[in-house]
Design a protein around this nucleic acid. Structure first.
Length: 182
DNA sequence: CCCTGATTCGC
DNA sequence: GCGAATCAGG
């Protein structure tokens, strides 16, 4: 069911450049459900202030070197006919959500990956806002600021959680998010 | 084959 | 309104 909270989460994650598959995993629905809802919100004019920013997604997958192919494989037995279409594997979706994407030590991080992370909007959220009460997605209710803090792929990722004042944000972050045309 | 969003249309 | 199935593409 698309509650107000879930719609806000959808808008927040979609606007942050997260893919439909990732948002779907977060909300416990399918990718089609997410895409369909986004389209309906746009149709209803509800997404005017939540455009998907142009450019590549905020969280990028490493395009990494190809895995080594196994030397030889025994011939596969003919597959059983499927009764149901295959669902996307959860492991794949989790991998997409950023798990295992960042190497254990910074020294092992590939330069292009670090560059991609530096260029994301998330690194702008270093400044502490007044009234900030960092919270997880689960704790993020409708009346709390949805400004993202830190790397969404990291365990430490939080939302601002301050009192909602302007659109989806507290007064401080609302002023950052919505600036008058200069 | 991995993935992406877009569209249609029965429910 | 919802979202599975399908489509079109990287």
């Amino acid at each position: 069911m698309w509650t107000l909270d879930r719609i806000d989460t959808l808008k927040s994650l979609w606007s942050a450049g997260r893919s439909a598959a990732i948002i779907a995993c977060e909300l416990g629905v399918t990718r089609n459900a997410v895409i369909g809802k986004v389209h309906r919100l746009q149709e209803a004019g509800e997404f005017d202030t939540f455009p998907r920013p142009p450019g590549p997604p905020v969280v990028r997958l490493p395009s990494g070197p190809a895995r080594k192919a196994p030397a030889a494989r025994p011939p596969k037995p003919p597959a059983e006919p499927r009764t149901k279409p295959a669902k996307p594997r959860r492991a794949t979706l989790l991998r997409q959500m950023g798990m295992d994407v960042v190497p254990a030590t910074p020294a092992q991080a590939r330069p292009e990956q670090l560059a991609a992370e530096r260029s994301t909007a998330w690194t702008r959220a270093e400044v502490r806002a007044p009234g900030e009460r960092p919270c997880t997605l689960i704790e993020l209710t409708h009346d709390r600021c949805r400004w993202p803090l830190g790397d969404p792929a990291a365990e430490s990722f939080r939302y601002c959680g301050g009192a909602r004042a302007h659109k989806s944000y507290c007064a401080h972050h609302g002023a950052l998010a919505y600036q008058p045309r200069r």
